[in-house]
Nucleic acid binder design. Sequence first.
DNA 1: AGTGTATATGTGAATAATCACTCATTTATT
DNA 2: AATAAATGAGTGATTATTCACATATACACT
Lengths: 196, 196
Amino acid sequence: MSEVLTEKRGVTAAPGSAKARIERAALILFVEKSIEGVSTKSISQYAGVSEGLLYRHFKSKADLSRVLMTTIHGRLTKLVRQHMNQPLAAAVSDIVRDYARLADEDWPLFAFHLLNMHRFPNLSDDGPLRAAAELVRFNQSAGRLRNGIAPDLLASMALGVVMQAAQSKLLGGNIGALSDHTETFERAVLAVLEDA
Amino acid sequence: MSEVLTEKRGVTAAPGSAKARIERAALILFVEKSIEGVSTKSISQYAGVSEGLLYRHFKSKADLSRVLMTTIHGRLTKLVRQHMNQPLAAAVSDIVRDYARLADEDWPLFAFHLLNMHRFPNLSDDGPLRAAAELVRFNQSAGRLRNGIAPDLLASMALGVVMQAAQSKLLGGNIGALSDHTETFERAVLAVLEDA
DNA sequence: AGTGTATATGTGAATAATCACTCATTTATT
DNA sequence: AATAAATGAGTGATTATTCACATATACACT
């Protein structure tokens, strides 16, 4: 079906494989409306493919959304775990920077996670929040953070500093790229962790 | 239609007016699934009324969700504005306390706002976040808060401390009643505002 | 109290549109 | 020629909303 140029893969007008285009379309529409608020027909139209093709690559609409969620969920989890084995301040700095970068580089994917994570409760067992809680607990045990507060709660509050800024952006706030505020986030997160 | 007891109004098995029962049912189901993911049939069944009755009280499903959203949105906005005219620390303390209390007293309503606010972008012009930003700006002007950071952003980060804890609860986290952590929230919010 | 009447509340079957999904068939690739 | 990718019309189920109808409540006048 491709009458568009495909010479230099990745820089041509054709944005990618049909499967990738379906995923992109679904992502964007899921964020704009909601998972149930988007029809398979509208996804396929947005992606520029037939409706039937959607079912060659995904066994159902729910499966499609599940694939998208596990993808971003895994990336975020790995991102946090990647930076855990270093002094707290450095870990926070790296995590915040990469979080903001990922959000800026693929906002629909990031927003999809933010908005729909609660619909995939089984993934909560191992996610960024859980990882962050482990980081907190380790630093509490090592005496580098106050011990009187539950790791889950402290991790939530710390992550919340960044996540609510993202939510704010989603609501049409004036905040620009999250990466423009990494230092601000970093200081605020540390303030929560150490002063609270 | 009422074969149930209605002796002592308000304490009987009949939980309230039909309209109130419809609103409750919608709220709970909207949070559990999503607005588009819930049918008018399921709402009416959950409420124990006929499907047609839904349209006596609300002109459409979208109208029903809009009424619910404006209700909670207005309450939260008023809540923040109510405590703005006092020293910052006291304002934060009062706002955090009332936020947590409202969340605990009517979790479905609170969660509905948290999850679906982004679907009502027109309400963002005047909401809790905007109010909080005004509080920040005032305290910046008065020299009580650092001036180098956008009020919108600072307000977001501060509110995020509480909101992410709520989100965490939504994801099945161990956090109990939010009111059990008002002091923790208060300290963390002040830490963000003053140290960041 | 009793009767008539308007208004509000409630019902559920009917409707046309849309839904997720399937499948026989066609087109492209190897 | 064989396999993979892609199509789009067709399927039965479900959707939001309407409507003709039934019941209950409230008010006005006797």
